[in-house]
Nucleic acid binder design. Structure first.
Length: 510
RNA sequence: GGUCCUGUGGCCGAGUGGCUAGGCUCAGCUCUGCAAAAGCUGCUACAGCGGUUCGAAUCCGCUCGGGACCUCCA
């Protein structure tokens, strides 16, 4: 590979040169959503961050197998106690639906939101319920290795035993004694030998709908085992990158490592990447805290109606203005907003920040449109090659999108200055800038060029508006400013914003 | 209580032991019948107090503030 990519590895707490096991192939696994309710914007942030990493790896020439799972079984309401209901089964009961109906509904909404945010689909999107045999097999192997025990139809991972020969806290940096002693009182522990032990397989109660046969009776898999089983199936015993939100480090990912090592004696992952949280007024957005808002609300500026059948953007029923948002924000503005912050920092949501992002994004988008209309000169006043190099350097430094953006804004500045005749670019450099934008803004950052006004209706509207603008221009020429201003005001009132430029007036929908 | 992260100009937000990220706001200018829009230029900040250093916002210590994890959470 031409580019030397450095990645911050949670495992070593250092930035490391990225060396795939089998270049140019790269295996990447990201923990996906649990589909017991709608994804919120915090979830989206994580997936968007990994989307940019995926895009950049592709851009610099890797062939990436990107696996992002869908959890549709086994995620308990009270994971540590090993009790409580399965989250999806619980929703099914509450809504009187089949569990698969719950999963189907939220999966549909999830994919629609991902598409609106312009995320590339993963190579494989495996579901936990579709990989029950694999999970049973892995559980059996862990039992055979002596790291798990069965009790009354439940199978638990024996953390203390594992920790004797392995570093259980290798990822979180916590030592076992701290974890054993500094935990609050918990219920429902009686079956487990150790308090840190976690379920690989759970016995299904009679009323439990989601159930499968296993060597230990009828039941369902634990939450952590699905990722170990599926990543191993599609990416191998050891693969390159595993990612997720940083809240998964101490429990989910720690247990994944334990399972994989316990099963196969191999560290499953070379590079662990964790994204930081999205906050609202400085506090983490999470389903359990209840301070979540939904993508459809952000994109519409409206509140989801209490009786909305779904929060899927295309199906949602909205009800009045959302108290948090001053206006609707385009998904690309939201994506741009996320790109302004490094994935490893918390990202705080506010109207002010969003509006600043909207303006910045529009400025970038405008200058991208201008590139095509630049006139070439014999010489360039800027070093586009160097600028391109700086863009790579930014991304090579642990996917530093804020720095990348600052370089892209420098490109925008150059374009605008050339457009104003204050600086010059050769024909080759104009092409180079065009390529820079399409490579980094569109391909890597995934900021989709604004959809051109298209379709029959827009075509007609465009002609009509231009007719009116011609009339206004005529009035202006006759110095009949009362008439020209009246036309302007009425167009604005109708939702048509106009821009007067040297070359005449342009318009767009407001 | 334990573990860890963090504190940057009016706001958001990168980064580095010395070489003024960037965006938004604001101001000036250009354009313009006016306005809007757009563009260009300008605005030298790093919580406080000590220490290390030729030199620290960047390293170390303390103090104060914010947050995360230790239950599920992207």
């Amino acid at each position: 590979m031409e580019q030397q990519l450095f990645i911050y590895n949670t495992l070593t707490r250092k930035k490391e040169l990225f060396k795939p096991l089998n270049a140019p192939l790269v295996g990447m696994y990201v923990c996906g959503p649990t589909l017991y309710s709608d994804v919120h914007i915090g979830n989206c942030r994580t997936f968007t961050s990994f989307d940019v990493m995926y895009r950049y790896l592709l851009h610099i020439g890797y062939k990436v197998r990107y696996v992002r799972n869908i959890t549709d079984v086994g995620h308990l309401v009270d994971e540590v106690a090993g009790e409580g209901e399965d989250r999806i089964a619980r929703q099914a009961r509450l809504k009187q639906l089949e569990p698969m109906e719950i999963v189907q509904r939220y999966a549909f909404g999830f994919r629609e939101v991902m598409a609106l945010l312009n995320l590339l689909p993963p190579s494989i999107e495996p579901t936990a319920s579709g990989h029950i045999p694999e999970q049973i097999e892995m559980t059996q192997k862990i039992i055979d290795k002596g790291f798990a025990y069965e009790k009354d139809g439940n199978v638990y991972f024996d953390v203390e035993k594992f920790a004797k020969s392995n570093n259980y806290g290798i990822l979180s940096g916590r030592n076992l004694d701290d974890q054993m002693n500094n935990t609050r009182e918990l219920d429902g522990q009686e079956e487990k030998k150790g308090r840190l032990d976690f379920a690989l397989w759970k016995k299904a109660k009679p009323e439990h709908i989601m159930r499968w046969n296993s060597p230990w009776g009828t039941g369902f898999p634990g939450w952590h085992i699905e990722c170990s089983a599926m990543s191993q199936k599609y990416l191998g015993d050891t693969f390159d990158i595993h990612g997720g939100g940083m809240d998964l480090i101490p429990t989910h990912h720690t247990n994944e490592i334990a399972q994989s090592v316990g099963c196969c004696d191999a560290a499953p992952v070379n590079y662990w990447i964790h994204t930081n949280m999205l906050t609202l007024n400085g506090q983490k957005m999470s389903r359990s805290l209840g301070n979540v808002f939904l993508p459809v609300e952000l994109f519409s500026g409206m509140k989801l109606a209490a009786d909305s059948p779904s929060a899927t953007p295309s199906q949602a029923k909205l009800d009045g203005k959302h108290p948090l948002f001053e206006k609707a924000y385009d998904p690309m503005v939201v994506r741009f907003f996320m790109m302004q912050t490094h994935y490893s920092s918390t990202l705080d949501f506010s109207n002010d920040a969003l509006q600043a992002a909207e303006k910045g994004y529009n400025r970038l988008a405008e200058s991208m449109k201008k590139v095509s209309s630049l006139s070439p000169s014999a010489q360039s006043t800027s070093d586009i090659k160097k600028l391109r190099q700086q863009c790579y350097e930014a991304m090579n430094d642990d996917f530093n999108t804020p720095i990348l953006l600052s370089n892209l804004f420098e490109a925008a500045r150059i374009v605008n200055s050339v457009y104003d005749g204050k600086e010059t670019l050769t024909a080759a450099d104009i092409e180079a800038v065009k390529k820079l934008f399409s490579d980094f803004v569109v391909d890597v950052l995934g900021l989709k060029a604004e959809a051109e006004n298209s379709g029959k209706q827009m075509e007609v509207l465009d002609k009509v508006v231009h007719m009116v603008l011609d009339m206004r221009a005529e009035a202006k020429q006759k110095k009949d400013f009362a008439a020209s201003d009246a036309i302007r005001d009425k167009l604005i009132a109708a939702g048509v914003a106009i821009k007067d430029t040297k070359e005449g007036s342009t318009w767009n929908l407001q």
